[in-house]
Design a protein around this nucleic acid. Structure first.
Lengths: 248, 248
DNA sequence: TCGACAGTTCGGCCGCCGCCGAAACATCGA
DNA sequence: TCGATGTTTCGGCGGCGGCCGAACTGTCGA
């Protein structure tokens, strides 16, 4: 007889986490937080499409479960994803959800922007992220084989010149330096992990990209258009091609 | 005003996938299938802890959603996880669930076996998997830095001698050759992807490990005990240490 | 051809949980 | 101190969905 398989991290706890994500309002909340910014309860209520009371309940449950974390600031309460692991799980679920029910999503201008460049929790995603990876691979700065990623010595030097010091970061055990992240829109891996976060941070700092309000999409600035090609080994005609054929 | 964020792979579809996993019976079913073997509806009913009728309903929903796939064989119907992506999502959820609610799980003998060696969908996991990775890293066969993994030329040679021809595999775009997989019991990455699958297959083929019935746990055979140390660069005293201190 | 067994379908019960209105609490500006 | 705004708590309604008993379909063995 099948003894029920003890299964330490067993169905019960998995189900409770998944059930938490498995509600439309909460999934919307978590999706919004995948943008990487901390948002107020009110903003999250808008994203969730339910009233403030209901949202409050959801936020409490998500916090109790350790999926999100809260910081008081004045009369606002800012919520964010608790750990990178949560983002990774959301990521994995998005990958499944994306190719499931037909590709019939009518693609609006909003989606175009998202597909071009967006944040994915703490790093860059979209075609811009892929273009960077391609350029850096061609230069031998990173090796992105088989869904795995490594930074070469040349890459370390290059990134240092660009203002990203990988040795400065605390390199916590639990936070891989260079992970890859396969995301829903392009289905190719791009840079994540601490390196991904550092790159996103530096690009925002330089003003080459800018966050758009109320969305995860990013805008490439004029300075950025030049800088990406001149300094980051983006294919010279990438910007034109990208602007010309924004849809998939 | 926050326009509700169009979000192509949006909360709605994410939630439907997560909700599917977010039921204890279905989570148990999927957990059982994480063992990598195809199981019959009856066996899955046992794992799920509900009646056959109820299980049938769950299996239908999971199949419709594309999470599992079914193959008829005589009067049995064998179910398995539909894609590696599904396994990865389960994996990510397990990682969250594992460190959430206390570590107070009383550790039984079953868990000991699971922690020593088990299958994780299609590859090896547990302390045995980590020992292999450690040995191969020390030999320079694989480079496992920052959660990413690469096989060196020496490694390719070594694996070839061991009966694993990495070039023979079709190397599908969507299936990374050498992924890493961080799992709940040891919280360190180990080999997954096509390489992980190939290694597990070869070890089973050689009879160095054997599946135990009704569980994901694996048994290391006598031949295996010698072979792992003699041919696979496992630390010589690993078997003794491992037998001596099986708990965490 | 028949009985045994694996699996599914149908119908109805029951409980959980998501939702909102109302009200309380907290913080800021004046 | 008072009103405005952001957030939470409480209470009650309503529906979705998981569960099982019973009956049906399909396959195997003799």
């Amino acid at each position: 007889m099948l003894a029920g398989m003890s299964n330490v991290a067993s169905g019960n706890s998995i189900a409770s986490v998944a059930a938490l994500i498995g509600d439309v309002a909460r999934a919307n909340i978590l999706s919004a937080l995948m943008g990487g910014l901390a948002l107020t309860a009110g903003e999250l209520a808008q994203f969730a499409g339910v009233t403030a009371q209901t949202t409050s309940g959801h936020l409490a449950r998500l916090t109790d479960a350790g999926l999100i974390a809260m910081a008081r600031q004045g009369r606002h309460r800012y919520y964010r994803l608790a750990t990178p692991e949560i983002a990774q799980a959301m990521q994995a679920l998005m990958a499944i959800a994306a190719d499931g029910p037909k590709r019939h999503h009518p693609i609006g201008p909003r989606d175009k922007a998202l597909r071009l460049a967006r944040t994915c929790y703490d790093h860059l995603a979209g075609r811009l992220a892929l273009a960077l990876v391609d350029g850096w691979s061609a230069q031998g700065y990173v090796i992105l084989a088989d869904g795995a990623g490594l930074v070469t010595d040349e890459g370390r030097q290059f990134l240092g010149d660009f203002g990203i010091d990988l040795d400065a970061a605390p390199r916590s055990r639990h936070r891989p330096l260079c992970r890859t992240c396969l995301d829903w829109s392009e289905r190719r891996p791009h840079l994540a992990g601490q390196l991904g976060a550092a790159v996103l941070g530096r690009l925002l700092e330089l003003g080459w990209i800018a966050r758009l309000p109320d969305t995860r999409a990013l805008r490439i600035t004029r300075t950025g258009e030049q800088g990406f090609v001149a300094q980051l080994h983006l294919a010279a005609d990438w910007m034109e091609r990208s602007a010309a054929a924004p849809g998939s």
